[in-house]
Design a protein around this nucleic acid. Structure first.
Lengths: 266, 266
DNA sequence: TTACTGTCAATCAAAAACAATCAAAAGCAA
DNA sequence: TTGCTTTTGATTGTTTTTGATTGACAGTAA
């Protein structure tokens, strides 16, 4: 992995949560401690972050306090600029007074910020999204009932009788672990269950997935590609994947990442 | 866990309530007493808090932060020590692995703190309680589905089919606006509806009400006194009210506000 | 009184993080 | 390819942080 790439990842991660550790970055970038330390030292000199013992700290107080202060799997804080661009596009599709469903996930979480100025009805099983929308926006927030899972900050319910069935939305926005010819893929069976339940509660199904998701396959199929109305991704998507979506009849929106220092080394 | 993280946790904990103990922080941060003491000593030197025997104290005058950072209404922040004592008694009734229901309210909210060290199943319609328990404790947290009301930080649902019906608890803890011969009283019809739905989901109904509530009457009757199994209040309760409860067959617990050195922590 | 409990400071050893160094690997130009 | 430079990973020993232990002290109960 290139130095620039690592730097991007580190800076992204630090936007999501106030502190990142060297160890976390080692895992994410698959490089050595020494390298990460060098990176952090470099970025510190560039005043992009503050070096602290054990890792790095955001240089300015974070505007978004991260997902409930929980240690957020850093793996998922990758590609943050892409996710933000994708989320912006997603929200751009919505009007005030729309009713939408947002599934919990790191990409969908980025919808929070552009949603702040809206006044919509938002149904979400993400505790984090609910929390932020409640505090920072005037949107109506609805939640399904169930158990709160700390790991994912998500509300899941094994029960069928659920408020979910009483809510019907114009659009449902969903993240994914991978997008493949086989379908939209996820890893966690519980999440699969929750998302499948929600898919039927909206007119349109829109999947938010940064381009890295197209190279990934996961263990479980969430739904067929044909069930998806639209995919929003970033500029990194390859032609083969784009073609695959077209064949499946899925509309594709490519969100442009706003990034001055975008070196197209990929 | 890193020093900075612990410091943040300690400082945030101290904002939630006037004093935190070393033990609490040990459990929350999963580090040793020595480390917490060092942290508190450091923060004391930085004048971020005041070190006291057994823990730390907020440095600025008792600033009640209340539900989700929203300031309490003056009326409700008034009897905070009483409410805390009442809440402590309430939690003292519970064992680990109990399943309980907690209704949203300023008195019941005070149960959060003593609950931090427990490992129970907590069903609550209070977003604030859920939030704090999720972040600061290891309790299992369950939520009903419905709409999030900003005003009260409560989840309310007009629908009958609800996870609520799938949860059955040993005890339900409920606040009240007033306790009167006519019954337990509330003001908000929506809250009445939610609480009535929950009353049937527990073996015992326990009402938490500081003594000022006995002089108050509100507009709506939530339930008859006879439905209540127990009332927990503070030392300010008058004989007439105590007698009224006895006649109705309600067990009464009087929580002692500030005794010599009451450490009723488990 | 004595025994017990909780708090605390001092101390030490283990663990984690670190800086410095060097050799291997990767990149690049001729 | 060779030769040179940059980057990386591993190794070393040093420093910092942490957890556990000890004994001292104060408050409480018997």
């Amino acid at each position: 992995m290139h130095e620039k790439e690592r730097h991007k990842i580190i800076l992204s991660a630090i936007q999501d949560k106030p502190i990142v550790t060297v160890q976390e970055m080692v895992e994410v970038t698959d490089s050595s401690e020494a390298t990460i330390r060098r990176d952090i030292a470099t970025l510190h000199l560039q005043k992009k972050l503050k070096r602290i013992r054990g890792g790095a700290e955001s240089i300015n107080p974070p505007q978004f306090v991260g997902l409930m202060g929980r240690p957020f799997s850093v793996n998922e804080s990758m590609n943050l600029p892409q996710k933000q661009a994708i989320a912006r596009e997603a929200v751009a599709l919505c009007d005030d007074s729309d009713a939408i469903i947002i599934n919990g996930g790191t990409t969908t979480f980025q919808m929070v910020h552009p949603l702040v100025t809206k006044r919509m009805q938002v149904f979400t099983n993400s505790f984090s999204i609910a929390e932020h929308l409640l505090k920072q926006s005037k949107n109506t927030v609805l939640l399904p009932g169930g158990t709160l899972y700390r790991e994912q900050n998500i509300i899941l319910s094994p029960f069928e009788n659920d408020v979910t069935r009483n809510f019907y939305a114009k659009r449902m926005f969903m993240g994914a672990r991978g997008i493949h010819m086989l379908g939209v893929m996820e890893t966690d069976p519980l999440i699969i269950q929750a998302e499948q339940k929600l898919i039927h509660q909206a007119d349109e199904l829109i999947v938010l997935a940064d381009s890295s998701k197209f190279s990934k396959r996961s263990s479980l199929i969430l739904c067929q590609l044909e069930q998806v109305n639209m995919v929003i991704t970033d500029e990194g998507i390859d032609d083969k994947s784009a073609n695959m979506l077209e064949v499946a009849g899925v509309k594709l929106i490519v969100a442009k990442t706003i990034n001055k220092n975008q070196k197209s080394s990929a």
